[in-house]
Write a protein that binds this DNA or RNA. Structure first.
Length: 565
RNA sequence: GCGCCUGUAGCUCAGUGGAUAGAGCAACUGCCUUCUAAGCAGUGGGCCGCAGGUUCAAUUCCUGCCAGGCGCGCCA
């Protein structure tokens, strides 16, 4: 579609005394598809030409010559509306998709450019809660989208494997675990003692000091502390791996906070050497008052480091190791200030990492009665949600398609797809109210709806057997059901670009819903198999094209595309 | 108190400086002897939070206010 818009802009530009780029930028979609494919408002010309917009549009319509490109150019209330030649459009878009197949949207825009994406990053010894779903699926989808644009993507899981909570955990383990080797349900146990610790600490504040002391020992390399730490990390990772397997997500690097431990002192030193630090109440800080922010703390009074120190070290490490064009942090919006501070400090250091750092923030998962909290034991395990959804998918399969092969696998794909798509459907910035009924809904704008549509398309292609999807008779595809679908398919590359530019997978999930809806309308109204050969072939070509776009879109969103369900 | 984010149909959410603001869910109603009814089609439902301002044109941009969320030095 973009190609045609550019051609129209090229030809209209001289008439409007604008550059083709300017004309392209003016184009909009008419509110009613019957009015055309492209609308150009003429209001802005009124002042220059000293004429009423409708008169200008009339004149342009009379002068515009777009033979072989547009079938209709007309003025309507101050707009110049252009209807593209439908056979040309249908032929061009569909043959383009069928030729390039899965790589229709692939560009080399990102060739030789790297991008580091930090996402998921669960906290060791804490359950993989529903709250981690967002960063995990958004990060995964963005990774795939940027790869589609040719970027060299590095997926980093920045595990929360360091910090004072390990001191608390050691104390909790000694008090409440009775020497449990953490073989059976390790995270469940760690979670339980962590909650118990916080309850106990309310009555006995001295536990907090004990915890701090243990963390200090850990930082100083104490063997006993390290032994506990290793145990906690090991058993936690095993649990997380199960969730990542369900979601079909992999990382290029597990580099937790502990990885940056040796880099912390040099990092603080570097910042001090640049004369950016001050000592305030015994702590080392970077004053950010001139930038309207609270100071960034690098060292506590006791000399130990903080979250910001580790993120600064990590950013410098990533910059120097990967030389990326961008560094994304897919982290909740409650950390906006933190990342603004880190970015500001990097900029004060005149490090390129500063401008490369992008905080891809998102809203929280919330219960109707308030926010979730691991400490108070108020959370929902992601694995439970996924399993419940899979169970439900299995039930629906038993009821609707009991003959299906690989029922277990399909139930897994659909159940997980429902959860993942449900999270990617909405703009990432909004808070999400957790609601079992909604998250387990498989009707309407959902993952299963998209998967079902894809399976339907596959089914038609299967049943068509040897019949070739051939495009000799494009005029079949210019009806009110096929043509809008084709035009939509033609938007795919721009949709991917926009999703990347905005770091927003929901751009793609919304699009794929439109494609699914378009296809279902077409499917319902236009019979494919059993039609006259040229008609069937043309329609099969559209089914094939749709199937490819759906499959690719689902891949980019991180959901499976079963061929039967 | 200060800062950031959000406010659109009963609910969950799209959307755009411009022509009649759109989906899904829920409710009601049609459509399976024809390619998967996890579908398609129809009906009802809206001071686009409130008040100003910029503009030929504001739900969209700016300011103020209201409501909700999040954050604000030794947690991450």
């Amino acid at each position: 579609m973009e190609k045609f818009k550019l051609q129209v802009a090229e030809r209209l530009a001289p008439l409007m005394q604008k550059t083709p780029q300017e004309v392209r930028a003016l184009m909009e979609a008419p509110p009613n598809p019957a009015w055309g494919d492209i609308a150009i408002p003429c209001f802005f010309l009124a002042k220059v030409l000293r004429k009423a917009p409708p008169a200008i549009a009339d004149e342009l319509a009379a002068k515009a010559e777009l033979p072989g490109l547009a079938s209709k150019v007309e003025a309507m209330g101050g707009y110049l509306n252009v209807t593209l030649d439908s056979i040309l459009v249908a032929k061009d878009i569909l043959s383009g998709i069928l030729e390039t197949g899965a790589s229709y949207a692939y560009t080399n825009a990102g060739a030789d450019k790297g991008i580091v994406i930090d996402f998921s990053s669960p906290n060791i010894a804490k359950p993989f809660g529903i709250g981690h779903l967002r960063t995990t699926v958004i990060g995964n989808s963005l990774s795939r989208i940027f790869k589609e644009l040719g970027y060299n993507v590095v997926r980093v899981n920045h595990l929360g494997d360091w910090g004072t909570q390990f001191g608390k955990l050691i104390v909790a383990y000694q008090l409440f675990a009775n020497g449990d080797p953490l073989i059976y349900d390790p995270i469940g146990t760690l979670y339980r003692i962590y909650v118990e610790y916080h309850k106990e600490a309310e009555a006995r504040p001295e536990l907090e000091d004990e915890a701090r002391a243990w963390f200090k020992r850990l930082e100083d390399g104490d063997a006993e502390a390290k032994r506990y730490w290793n145990l906690f990390v090991e058993v936690s990772l095993k649990d997380y791996k199960r969730v990542y397997d369900l979601l079909d997500i992999e990382f290029d690097a597990y580099m937790g906070e502990s990885f940056y431990e040796p880099l912390l002192n040099p990092t603080v030193q570097e910042i001090e050497d640049k004369g950016l630090t001050q000592v305030s109440d015994g702590a080392v800080i970077v004053d950010l008052e001139p930038y309207g922010m609270p100071p960034c703390l690098l060292r506590k009074t006791d000399g130990s480091t903080l979250y910001a120190t580790r993120d600064l070290a990590a950013a410098l490490y990533r910059e120097r190791t990967y030389r990326p064009e961008q560094m994304l942090y897919v982290v909740g919006q409650e950390q906006t200030l933190h990342f603004k501070q880190v970015k500001q400090v990097l900029e004060l250091m005149q490090e390129p990492a500063g401008e490369k750092l992008v905080h891809v923030s998102f809203g929280l998962f919330r219960f109707p009665e308030g926010r979730m909290s691991t400490r108070r034991g108020k959370t929902i395990f992601l694995e439970d949600v996924l399993n419940k959804s899979i169970e439900m998918a299995a039930e629906i399969i038993n009821q609707k398609n009991p003959e299906l092969d690989d029922r277990e696998q399909v139930a897994r794909q659909v159940g997980v797809g429902a959860i993942v798509f449900g999270d990617l459907k909405n703009g990432r910035i909004k808070d999400v109210a957790f609601d079992w009924e909604e998250i387990l809904n498989f009707d309407g704008e959902t993952g299963p709806y998209v998967q079902y549509t894809h399976a339907r398309a596959c089914s038609v292609l299967r049943k068509a057997g040897g019949s070739v999807a051939n495009l000799s008779n494009e005029s079949v595809l210019t009806d009110e059901f096929a043509l809008p679908l084709i035009k939509l398919l033609g938007e795919f590359p721009q949709v991917i670009e926009r999703a990347a530019l905005q770091y927003e997978p929901s751009v793609l999930s919304r699009y794929v819903l439109d494609v699914a809806q378009g296809f279902n309308r077409f499917y319902h109204n236009c019979r494919i198999i059993g039609q006259e050969v040229s008609v069937m072939q043309a329609r099969l070509a559209l089914v094939k094209g749709t199937q490819q776009i759906l499959e690719r879109s689902m891949y980019l969103l991180g959901i499976a595309a079963p061929e039967k369900m």
